[in-house]
């Protein structure tokens, strides 16, 4: 094991990790927004939009991210839309994640009891207030394990971003492999992903436990 090599290349991995985290962060934020909107549309059975949401979710969940990225990076320019690698990466992750998070949120929304909704209505809450104060907080608590699984899945999916020429963790590791330090590179790659994803995983675990103790489950 060449530790000199590792220390020398660590900043490279640090940079790549930052890029991975940034792209994953925005992708997951936008995914959550898309997922929530789709889930609420399906929850309220909004005509037409509901079918559109269902179609989108199936498309997003049943095609690989790498194919979605190919379409965005190599396909869209043919239609006259040229996006840079980062935009494609975030858009692709949002497209994929929106589908997964929509399903996670939907599970939570359908777990909120009819009686809770009626109680909210009976004090005069309008639809928006009902969502904000009654339905979403309860749905979130129920959906959290599914959300957590989806978020971690999306973070791991960022490893295909190198195909749109982004110097993320996978890209950097592949480069170093060419220099012949395969053991060191692999080790740093694994360590980098763990450093990035493990804290998120632990944070979700903590959040789940806190919500469970803070007032649910009679």
């Amino acid at each position: 094991m060449d530790f000199e090599f590792i220390t020398a290349r660590a900043p490279l991995f640090g940079q790549a990790a930052r890029l991975t985290v940034t792209l994953a962060f925005w992708g997951i934020i936008f995914s959550s927004a898309v997922g929530l909107v789709c889930a609420v549309i399906r929850f309220y059975r909004v005509p037409l939009l509901r079918q559109a949401a269902a179609g989108y979710i199936e498309l997003a969940r049943n095609t690989p991210l790498i194919v979605q990225l190919f379409f965005l990076y190599f396909g869209l320019p043919r239609l006259g839309v040229v996006w840079d690698g980062e935009t494609c990466a975030i858009a692709g992750l949002t497209f994929l994640g929106g589908g997964y998070l929509a399903e996670a949120f939907r599970g939570g929304l359908s777990a909120v009891g009819r009686g809770q909704i009626e109680a909210g209505l009976s004090i005069g809450l309008n639809r928006f207030q009902l969502l904000r104060y009654v339905i979403i907080p309860q749905a979130l608590a129920v959906a959290l394990p599914a959300i957590s699984a989806a978020v971690i899945f999306l973070m791991k999916e960022t490893s295909v971003f190198s195909i749109v020429a982004l110097p993320d963790l996978m890209y950097v590791a592949k480069d170093l492999l060419k220099e012949g330090y395969s053991g060191e590179s692999n080790l740093m790659l694994v360590a980098s992903y763990l450093v990035v994803i493990l804290p998120v995983s632990l944070a979700f675990g903590y959040w789940e436990r806190r919500l469970r103790f803070a007032g649910f489950g009679s």
Binding site: G115, Q116, E118, A119, S122, Q138, G215, F216
Partner: peptide
Amino acid sequence: GMVFQNYELFPHFN
């Protein structure tokens, strides 16, 4: 005002 058989207090609020 309405009061229900199963209370229906909001579990996430005190």
